[in-house]
Structures are given as structure tokens and as C-alpha cells.
């Protein structure tokens, strides 16, 4: 009995250490990839920064779809709200400090997350999907209509962020924006690893598996999911704010159904329910898009479609999930 408990405790400690090791390895990989990207594409830092912002959106989508099992095709609502909040704060209220703009974006994302969560979580299955689609269109139409604040279909231009910390100006090549984005991504990633592994994160997974049992245990699935939606909103809002700061313009496309659908595709391509999967999917998808769409937009659509069908048929766990499963099996065999 004591023996078993001790063994369990040892195993748990070893497991924790291994997880911590994987976290550090993950952070290291992000930073290493960032350096490699900087060295390989010094003239295309804008694309890499955009990729970082989208990675934040996909991470935030993973929180609600991968960890909570909420099917949504309207997640760009949180991203776009963050972008517009940061942009409006800069243009109409003169808040041009990048960190304050980031805070505004996060706040906007949290509010949008609360709103979307409250509506989307009212239904399940198909009605849930339809609600999320209706919401993203509603946000889009609203931003289009409130053109005195958002610039309408021309986009919100004239965002001029101050130098970061008063030291590093946002230069024409986007070096500062890139470093800012990577640091933001690394910090968010580390925080999310903690959130996902906390009892709260476990509760969310439990709700995904069996909401009725969770309710029987005395926890409220709805309140928990809305909290997760707000966290997700903060992450997506940070991504939106990063996009607004780095491109200095916010367009209606950041609140579009297309962006929502694309982020879902990226997430599933990488693998749901894993933060590494979300990052992998974003990087692969966006590089692929950059290369193919330059050739022909219709071929691009066909390729994405074929890619999606192939992933659903042959790698339902996504790229990262499949690789991780193969690696685990390989390790098992070696032991």
C-alpha cells in the first residue's frame, strides 16, 4: 500500500519533471524558430510577425475548441475586437504606447469573449456552429457600419505606436515588431501551459468529455466555459493588438468569417487539444499559403481543400498529434 503510494508519488514527480522539461523545450523551440526565421527571411519579417499574431489566434481557438470541445466558426470576432480596440485607442484616444495598446486589445478581447461565450454556449452541435457564424457576421457588419469609429471598409488607418518602452522605435523593416511579437508569444505560451495544466484546465477537459458528470460533481460547466472563453479572448485580443501595432492598420478582414474558418483549419491541421499542435498548424499553413497563393488563388483553394480532406482521412489527430503518437509508439517499442 505504502509502496504503491510512494511509487505513484515518484511517477507523478517524474511526470511533472518531464512536463516541465517539455515546456522549456517548447519555449526553446519557439525562440530557436524565431531566430532561424529572422536569419532566413530578413526581408519578410512582416509575414513572420503576421504569423505570430495568427498563432495567438489559433492558440486561443485551441483553448475553447481543443480543450473545451466548443465548435466555433466565429473565433476571429475576438481577434478583430482586440485589433479594433487597440487601434481605436491609438487613433481616437491618443493611447499610443504599445504596451498600453496591448492592454486595450486584451481588454477588448476579454469583453468580446464574454459576449461570444454567453451567446455561443447557449446551444450545442449544429445550432452552436450557426450561432458562432451569425456572431462573426454581426461583428463584421457592425464594424462596417460604425465607420466613424472603425473606418468602415477602408480600414482604420493612422495608428502610430510610440517606441517600445521609450527605447525601440517601430522601424520600417519591422524588426522591433517582430521581436515584440515573439516575446509576447513566448510569454503567452508559458502562461497557457500553466493554465492548461491547472485544476481549472483539467476541469475544462472534463467538461469536454462529460458535462453531465462534471455538473454532478458540483462544478458549473457553463461558468467554467465562460471563464475559459474570457481567457481565450485575452489571448486572441493580444494577437489582434499585435497585428494592429505591427501593421499600423486594422481592416475589416480581421473580423471575417474567412479568418475564423482559416484559423480552425490551421488548428486542425496541427492537431487540437495541444498548444504545440496549434503552433505547428499555423506555421505550416501560413508558409504553404504564402508560397501557393502567390501562384494562383484558385489552385490555392483546391490545395487547401485537398489538404483538409487528407488530414481528416489520414491524420485525424493533426500533424503534431500524429507525429507525437508515432514518437510515443517508437519509444514504447524501444523500451
Amino acid at each position: 500500500m505504502t509502496m504503491a503510494t510512494m511509487n505513484d508519488a515518484l511517477a507523478a514527480a517524474r511526470g511533472n519533471r518531464r512536463k516541465l522539461g517539455r515546456d522549456l523545450a517548447g519555449l526553446f523551440v519557439i525562440l530557436a524558430l524565431a531566430v532561424v526565421g529572422y536569419l532566413l527571411f530578413p526581408n519578410n519579417l512582416a509575414l513572420l510577425t503576421r504569423m505570430t499574431a495568427i498563432a495567438l489566434l489559433v492558440l486561443s481557438l485551441d483553448l475553447v475548441t481543443g480543450y473545451c470541445g466548443v465548435a466555433t466558426l466565429g473565433h476571429a470576432a475576438l481577434f478583430g475586437t482586440g485589433a479594433y480596440t487597440a487601434g481605436i485607442a491609438a487613433v481616437h484616444f491618443g493611447i499610443t504606447d504599445p504596451l498600453l495598446m496591448l492592454a486595450c486589445g486584451i481588454l477588448g478581447g476579454v469583453v468580446a469573449g464574454l459576449l461570444c461565450g454567453a451567446v455561443i454556449l447557449r446551444a450545442h452541435g449544429l445550432p452552436q456552429l450557426v450561432l458562432s457564424i451569425a456572431l462573426i457576421h454581426l461583428f463584421h457588419e457592425f464594424a462596417n457600419k460604425a465607420s466613424s469609429w472603425t473606418g468602415g471598409s477602408d480600414g482604420l488607418a493612422g495608428i502610430a505606436p510610440d517606441p517600445l518602452l521609450g527605447l525601440f522605435a517601430f522601424d520600417l523593416w519591422g524588426r522591433t515588431a517582430y521581436v515584440f511579437g515573439i516575446v509576447l508569444l513566448a510569454v503567452v505560451f508559458a502562461l497557457l501551459r500553466l493554465v492548461v495544466r491547472s485544476p481549472f484546465g483539467m476541469l475544462c477537459r472534463g467538461i469536454k468529455e462529460d458535462p453531465i458528470r462534471i455538473r454532478a460533481m458540483g462544478a458549473s460547466p457553463k461558468v467554467t466555459l465562460i471563464k475559459m472563453y474570457m481567457i481565450s479572448g485575452a489571448v486572441a485580443g493580444a494577437g489582434g493588438a499585435l497585428n494592429a501595432i505591427s501593421t499600423q492598420v486594422v481592416g475589416l478582414d480581421s473580423l471575417s468569417f474567412t479568418l475564423s474558418a482559416e484559423s480552425l483549419v490551421m488548428l486542425v491541421l496541427g492537431g487540437t487539444g495541444s498548444l504545440f499542435g496549434a503552433l505547428t498548424g499555423t506555421i505550416v499553413f501560413m508558409f504553404f499559403e504564402d508560397i501557393v497563393s502567390a501562384a494562383n488563388p484558385f489552385h490555392w483553394l483546391t490545395m487547401v481543400g485537398a489538404l483538409l480532406i487528407a488530414v481528416v482521412l489520414f491524420a485525424p489527430k493533426g500533424l503534431y498529434g500524429t507525429i507525437a503518437a508515432v514518437a510515443a509508439r517508437w519509444q514504447e517499442a524501444r523500451r
Binding site: L129, F298, G305
Partner: peptide, 14 residues
Amino acid sequence: VLMTIGITFCIIGI
């Protein structure tokens, strides 16, 4: 959703 979006994209492209 993913499978049918994929089919849609393919049909549009083709």
C-alpha cells in the same frame, strides 16, 4: 465541418 469545407474548397477550385 472540416471534411465538407475541404470538399467545398476543392469544388470551387476545380
